[in-house]
Design a protein around this nucleic acid. Sequence first.
DNA 1: TGCGAAATGTGATATTATAACATACTAAGG
DNA 2: CCTTAGTATGTTATAATATCACATTTCGCA
Lengths: 166, 166
Amino acid sequence: MSSSRPRRDFPNAEHDHSHCAAHALGQADLICEARGVRLTEIRRRVLEVIWDSHVPIGAYDILAKLNAGGGRSAPMAVYRALDFLIENGLVHRIDSRNAFFGCSHPEEPHRAQFLICNVCSAVAELDSEALHETVRRTARTKGFRVENVVIEASGRCPNCARKSAP
Amino acid sequence: MSSSRPRRDFPNAEHDHSHCAAHALGQADLICEARGVRLTEIRRRVLEVIWDSHVPIGAYDILAKLNAGGGRSAPMAVYRALDFLIENGLVHRIDSRNAFFGCSHPEEPHRAQFLICNVCSAVAELDSEALHETVRRTARTKGFRVENVVIEASGRCPNCARKSAP
DNA sequence: TGCGAAATGTGATATTATAACATACTAAGG
DNA sequence: CCTTAGTATGTTATAATATCACATTTCGCA
Ligand SMILES: [Zn+2]
Ligand SMILES: [Zn+2]
Ligand SMILES: [Zn+2]
Ligand SMILES: [Zn+2]
C-alpha cells in the first residue's frame, strides 16, 4: 500500500510542452466553470504565462511577459491573479524560490511536495499523502497541530544527474 | 525504531529565554574556536539579536535592533553575518517566512525541519533523519538526487492549540 | 436599468536581498 | 617590526519581491 501518487514527472527532452500548457488551460476553464469562479482575462493570461515556462517563474517575470506585447499591467494585477490561481489550486508557490509553478492535477485539492533541479530548475510535483502524514505524525508527538506543510527538495533531476556524475 | 531526535521544543511560558541565549552564545564561541573561524563582533551581535528574539526574526528587524543604540550598520553587514552564521550551522533560515532562527544544537551539522506556530510564531526544530530519508527515498523513485530538503510545517503550537480549540 | 459585489487600475510604498568598490583588519612569513 | 595576501567590514546604490490604499470598471442579478 503506497499512498504516493506521482503526477507531474520530470519531462523528457522531447516532450511537447505546449501540449501540457493547452491541456492545463482547458482544465482550468472546466474547473472554474464547475466551481462557479471566474477565470478572467488577466487570470487566464497569467496562467498561460506560467505554463509557457517549463520551470517556476517569478512574479515580475510573469509581469514582463504579460507586458511584452505593449501591455501596461502593474505588479498588483499579477499578484492578485496569483492569489486567485493559488487559492483555486491551479498554481503552486515554491517558497524556496519565490516562484510559481502550474499545478498539473488541479481537479482536486491536494498536498504537494516539490523536487527542484539546482541545474536546470525543472520541477516534479509529488503528491505523497504518506510523506505528509509522516510530518503530521512527527509534529503530533510535540503537541503541534499541523495546518500546512512545505516540502521542497532541491538537487539534480534525472537528466542533469546523468550529465554531471554518471 | 525512531531516528527522530527532538532538540528545541516549544518553550513553556516560564522558561528563561535569556539563559538559552547565553548558552547559545557560549556554544558559538567554542564552536568557532574549535573550527578556526572567527566569530567577529558583528557576527556575534547578530547572533545575540537573533537569540534575543524567541521567534524567527527578519534581516531588517535584526538591523533595527543592531542600530537601536545609535549604530549605523547597513543591510549588507547583517546579510554577511547571516551568511557566516548559516554556513556554520549557528542559525537556520526559515524559507517560508524569510526569517532567521538560532540553531539550538549547532555542535554537529544536521538536517533540520521546523514547526512554526501561525499564532505566536514559536518554532520547534526537529532533527528527524527518518523524515529526511523518506523524502530522499521518495525522490529517488523519480531518479532525483537530493542535495537539500526544506521541510516547514505551520500550524498551532501546543500553547496556542490549547487556547483556541480544546 | 440600477444596485451591490467582485474585479481591475493606478500610484505609492514596504520589504527583502545583492552588486560593486573602497577601506580596514588579521595573520603569517621574512 | 614590516610587508603582504587574504579576510572582513564600510558604504552607496540598486535589484527583486510584495503590499497598501483608493479610484474605477465590470459583472451578475433584481
Ligand atoms: Zn499540484
Ligand atoms: Zn535538471
Ligand atoms: Zn539546527
Ligand atoms: Zn503558538
